[in-house]
Design a protein around this nucleic acid. Structure first.
Length: 693
DNA sequence: TCTCCATGAGTTTTT
DNA sequence: CTCATGGAGA
């Protein structure tokens, strides 16, 4: 156990802490993962059976890495540790017990992703005959999610509730579960079914949780049930890095945990990542948050380091220019492109910087975008496989029946779906009975024949790698892409080849007959959003949002577009709660940097095609170490006003209003109730002047 | 069934 | 500005 010697005092204290509830508050870069894996290894060394340990994480990547580390530390029997994401843990439980719930689910249910969910919502809206303009699919899917996970009491509009019910019915009738269901049904089984509850309460002796600050209400309840009997909950997290509130992460869970379990608390604040200029800035910034349990100040042994560099650019373009220049200077000083990250608040801001990178020939990658398993061609291929695997999967049937084009239009599909509904069979089965024009009917019959033929091929197969070639040629999918003869199509073919290698790897990883392997592989894919390609090898600057780099670190970090209205965003200005979350996002940003940190903003920026004046983000001032006000000299003319008394304006949040007076840069504007009179910077990006009628 | 234009919306997203 | 969507028309 020589790895125990590598831990610092607080880490060691946490690791050898006797049984009972413990909250390890692990600040950024303080060895959170190291402590958690050491704890698991320690438990195993103490004689706890690996299969009686449950550790949950938020990402597959974290789960996989942690498992590997524990195996490295204690040997291969650590394979038996239950180390899963919350969702994967739920999936395990539900594959075993879902038939006990009164919703008609069979253990062979399918997990759909966010995109599929939206499609279903959209179909439901249409089938209810509602005006599609009145209901945004995106926000409805969100509302449904809020409602399902008890984060919203009731729907505001009766139609919304109808859509929710339609969605839920569709899922149940088609044996589909969305991501929320994986957690909700798991909780229901654990809370309402004493036998199951007892099984899992006593099946584990220890429950460990990573990134606890990101747990939502349902996840916390699951942990609560699991830990109720033995109370051996080892929870690691950093409330200051809670930046997923919008997705349901409940900031108060840390308070609840300390109270509900009367847990002890150990704080890790010795940082191993950054120099102290950076840490001081981070400490100073986060201290501005009022709602802040478990306060801590980060400090490291890495010296004071280089001061943070602030830069005010005259325009958005010049800001990118400055960043490029500084990157070039860093390179001359011996940094590699790999050491550098450009971080911003939202994805749209990547564009400017991407353009600049291309122009200057600096290698870069942009995080985010559509991930591998969300790509159209990959989803199509998987949908085919699901239909072949089980012909009654109407949802996936609909997706592929006319891809490539087989002249089976929307109308034909609708008629078929109705027929299937009348007969109470799947669309696939209903093909024989449906009344359609001969062309459409024979196209459907041909499709059916093709699927049956593919099914026969599958039955003959022994390994997953055999799937793709047959599938792609029989369905005509590859041919369709080849005929397109575009770069885009080439790229899609490459992605399908990559899917092929996913299956090849699956052959090594999974055991059993073809269909057993296939089902395991499909489950895996359902919970994985992306391939874990190791991108750290290549040498390029990383462009990413703050959210995307949580948990990562870079020698040099550029926090760009630090402007009021963008970061913090307009929406966050009204509530302390949201503003504090924005501040935590900034805190995450600062703490990514190991040696160099730049904070930049521009005075003028194109926003939606219009030039707007930008003010430096309050986070600059709030984190700045020199006490006096930042030497910010605006270069625009104070006297030329953008607005004048009597102007009508439209504010993104407060709606329409009239300018009552102007003093300096501040306009007093009267908005309709309940907002009333507000004083706002006249050039604030959320204000738009509207022409008088 | 496909293509073209008008229209509107426009944070963050581990699963 | 730029992307997605939906309706009209070929």
């Amino acid at each position: 156990m020589n790895w125990l010697a590598t831990l610092n005092e607080s880490q060691l204290e946490a690791v050898i802490h006797p049984n009972g509830p413990l909250f390890v508050v692990a600040g950024a870069g303080t060895g959170k993962t190291r402590t958690l894996t050491a704890k698991i290894a320690y438990l195993i060394m103490q004689g706890v059976e690996p299969k009686r340990i449950l550790a949950v994480t938020f990402t597959n990547k974290a789960a996989r890495e942690m498992k590997q580390r524990v195996i490295d530390m204690t040997g291969p029997h650590a394979m038996d540790v239950w180390l899963y994401t919350f969702h994967a843990f739920g999936l395990q439980i539900l594959r075993r017990h879902i038939q006990e719930l009164p919703y008609g689910y069979k253990p062979s249910f399918t997990v759909i992703d966010e995109d599929d969910g939206k499609k279903i919502v959209s179909d439901v809206i249409k089938s209810l005959g509602l005006d599609t303009k009145m209901f945004s699919v995106k926000s409805l899917k969100n509302l449904i999610s809020l409602f399902k996970s008890n984060r919203m009491e009731e729907f505001e509009r009766s139609e919304e509730e109808k859509i929710y019910k339609g969605y839920q019915t569709y899922l149940r009738e088609n044996q589909l579960l969305d991501f929320d269901d994986l957690l909700i049904y798991t909780l229901e089984l654990l809370e309402e079914y004493p036998r199951i509850k007892l099984k899992y309460q006593t099946g584990f002796d220890h429950v460990l949780v990573d990134e606890f600050q990101d747990t939502d209400v349902i996840q916390y309840k699951i942990l609560k049930v699991l830990g109720e009997v033995h109370k051996n909950l080892f929870v690691v997290g950093d409330p200051d890095q809670s930046i997923y509130g919008f997705r349901g992460a409940n900031y108060n869970n840390s308070k609840y945990f300390l109270k509900d379990f009367n847990a002890e608390e150990i704080i890790l604040d010795k940082n191993y990542r950054s120099t102290n200029f950076i840490l001081k800035a981070a400490n100073k910034l986060i201290a501005k948050n009022f709602n802040r349990p478990s306060q801590k100040n980060l400090e490291s042994d890495l010296g004071i380091g280089t001061p943070i560099v602030y830069h005010t650019a005259q325009s958005d373009y010049q800001e990118t220019f400055y960043v490029i220049n500084e990157i070039n200077r860093l390179i001359m000083q011996g940094y590699t492109y790999n050491d550098v990250a450009i971080l911003y608040r939202n994805n749209a801001l990547s564009r400017l910087f991407e353009d600049a990178m291309i122009k200057e020939g600096i290698p870069y990658i942009i995080y985010g975008g559509i991930s591998f398993y969300e790509r159209k061609e990959v989803k199509d291929a998987l949908a085919y496989i699901r239909v072949i695997n089980d012909c009654n999967q109407d949802f996936y049937f609909k997706r592929v029946v006319n891809v490539p084009k087989r002249s089976i239009g929307l109308k034909s599909i609708q008629v078929l779906e109705e027929k299937a509904g009348q007969l109470g069979v799947s669309m696939f089965e209903a093909i024989d009975y449906v009344d359609l024009r001969p062309q459409a009917k024979s196209a459907l019959l041909d499709f059916k024949k093709m699927i049956i033929s593919l099914k026969e091929d599958f039955d003959e197969m022994e390994d997953l790698y055999q799937i793709m070639p047959v599938l792609m040629s029989k369905t005509g999918y590859t041919q369709m892409l080849k005929d397109e003869n575009t770069e885009q199509a080439e790229y899609r073919i490459d992605n399908l080849k990559e899917l092929q290698s996913v299956f090849t790897r699956g052959d090594v990883y999974y055991e059993g007959f073809f269909y057993e392997k296939l089902n395991q592989q499909l489950d895996q894919i359902a919970l994985y959003s992306d391939l874990d390609q190791d991108v750290t090898e290549d040498n390029h600057v990383k462009l990413a949002t703050y959210h995307q780099v949580k948990g990562l670190e870079f020698k040099a970090v550029f926090m760009v577009v630090l402007e009021e209205g963008i970061f913090p965003g307009d929406r966050a200005l009204m509530s302390t709660y949201e503003l504090e979350e924005e501040r935590r996002v900034a805190y995450v940003g600062i703490t990514r940097a190991k040696e160099r940190l730049y904070m930049t903003h521009a005075e003028r920026r194109m926003v939606y095609g219009q030039i707007k004046i930008g003010y430096p983000s309050r986070f600059i001032k709030e984190s700045r170490l020199d006490m006096p006000e930042p030497k910010y000299k605006p270069t625009y003319d104070y006297e030329s006003h953008l607005l004048k008394t009597g102007d009508h304006v439209d504010h993104q949040v407060f709606g329409k209003g009239v300018v009552v007076s102007i003093e300096g840069e501040v306009a007093t504007i009267a908005f309709a109730m309940p907002h009333g009179i507000k004083q706002i910077l006249e050039s604030h990006p959320s204000i738009k002047k509207i022409k008088k009628q």
